[in-house]
């Protein structure tokens, strides 16, 4: 089992993508650097490679040329098991569609990341209950199963799960696509509020530019970007 990864992070640089080309879909990306606590919005039309970029950043897709480094570690330099551990320890992902485990209640769903990472287990200062509360989910529903919740509520549970154990980097793939504009803005507000507490960085992919306020940087990907 892999327990210790080389700990070489001296800067506040969380993630850097440079000279990055996806070999799978043949798209090149601009250099992107994410520092601690920074929020970056990535937009672009469909086919511009938004999700591909997020996959590369998360180390889920290692079929690339160039560098993608999380905490100065390049995904391609790691073994599959090391990648799993690095992702479990430092990245929280909020998915486009609702991805809660249907048979686990809200608390169990939120605490899921701690099963795969001792670091996040230790760093879980904020309990699942507190995170759910903060995201506006009252305690009386914490033991319910996800299918008893509304879409907006479920997406907030998914956000609480990504935040649990204070991972350094939150990646969000169109997290508001299932929500109406009012709820989408409210979701982003709650998410960023909670992230302020632990100074987490956020990279969010969206096509909804109205959400851009409150982000430190906005990167627009053109189709066929070179």
């Amino acid at each position: 089992m892999l327990t210790s990864l080389p700990w070489r992070w001296q800067t506040d640089r969380m993630l850097i993508c440079s000279n990055l080309t996806s070999l799978r879909v043949d798209i090149s990306f601009p250099t992107i650097e994410v520092t601690e606590g920074q929020r970056i919005l990535i937009s672009g039309a469909s086919g511009s490679g938004k999700s591909t970029l997020l996959n590369l950043m998360a180390g889920l897709d290692t079929n690339y040329n160039g560098q993608v480094q999380l905490l100065d570690l390049d995904w391609n330099a790691l073994t599959a098991a090391q990648r799993q551990q690095l992702r479990a320890d430092h990245i929280g992902i909020i998915f486009q569609s609702l991805n809660l485990i249907p048979y686990l209640d809200l608390i169990d769903n939120v605490e899921l990341p701690a099963r795969f990472s001792a670091i996040r287990r230790k760093a879980a200062d904020r309990s699942a209950t507190e995170l759910l509360d903060r995201l506006g989910l009252p305690a009386r529903i914490h033991r319910r199963k996800p299918d008893q919740l509304s879409l907006g509520q479920r997406q907030r549970v998914a956000a609480a799960r990504a935040l649990y154990g204070a991972p350094k980097l939150i990646l969000a793939d169109e997290p508001t696509s299932a929500l109406d504009s009012h709820n989408a803005q409210r979701f982003i507000d709650l998410l960023t509020e909670s992230m302020n507490l632990d100074n987490q960085s956020l990279v969010m992919v969206t096509h909804d530019l109205s959400l851009a306020t409150g982000f430190d940087r906005h990167i627009h990907l053109d189709v066929g970007h070179a």
Partner: peptide
């Protein structure tokens, strides 16, 4: 498969 994809993205090891 969906569940495994989710676990994979969360960094779960293969044995899990």
């Amino acid at each position: 498969t969906r569940e495994m994809a989710l676990y994979h993205a969360m960094g779960a090891p293969l044995r899990y």
